[in-house]
């Protein structure tokens, strides 16, 4: 059974509770889930489900990297430079481009259009 199958209820839960995530594959088939939850509560739900599926987290087949988005946040910002894209900036901070997009809907109209000098909120 693949890690995706094993943790499918966790991913379904993320879709339901408004957590945006991206999947990647780490060491030896480890499923790496990088995402942003809308609240502490949503994040706790995901960790509870993780614990239900893998008590004590000793299977070493999932890395759940969920941060809690916005709501004041830690106040990290990034000033766009020429040649940047949301996915490039996301990679720099190790977060999904979507979470940057979600955090900056107030100033962005199109995820493909960012301009040098714009100051983006980084939900880390």
């Amino acid at each position: 059974m693949s890690a995706q199958e094993k943790y499918q209820t966790l991913l379904e839960l993320a879709n339901q509770n408004g957590t945006t995530y991206e999947l990647s594959e780490g060491d030896n088939g480890t499923l790496v889930v990088t995402g942003v939850a809308p609240s502490e509560e949503a994040k706790t739900q995901l960790w509870d489900e993780y614990e239900r599926l893998d008590p004590e987290f000793r299977s070493n087949d999932l890395i759940l990297n969920i941060s809690v988005g916005q709501a004041g946040g830690s106040g990290t910002t990034y000033t766009v430079e020429s040649g940047d894209s949301l996915s490039k900036i996301g990679k720099h901070y190790g977060i999904a481009w979507k979470s940057i997009w979600d955090a900056n809907r107030d100033i962005l109209n199109d995820p493909d259009k960012i301009y040098p000098g714009q100051v983006l909120k980084i939900p880390v």
Binding site: D27, E51, F57, I63, N65, G94
Partner: peptide, 16 residues
């Protein structure tokens, strides 16, 4: 324990 595991998994690691 759970807090410590969370802390490690949230550091941007690719295997554990």
């Amino acid at each position: 324990y759970v807090t410590c595991v969370q802390t490690i998994q949230q550091a941007g690691i690719t295997g554990i």
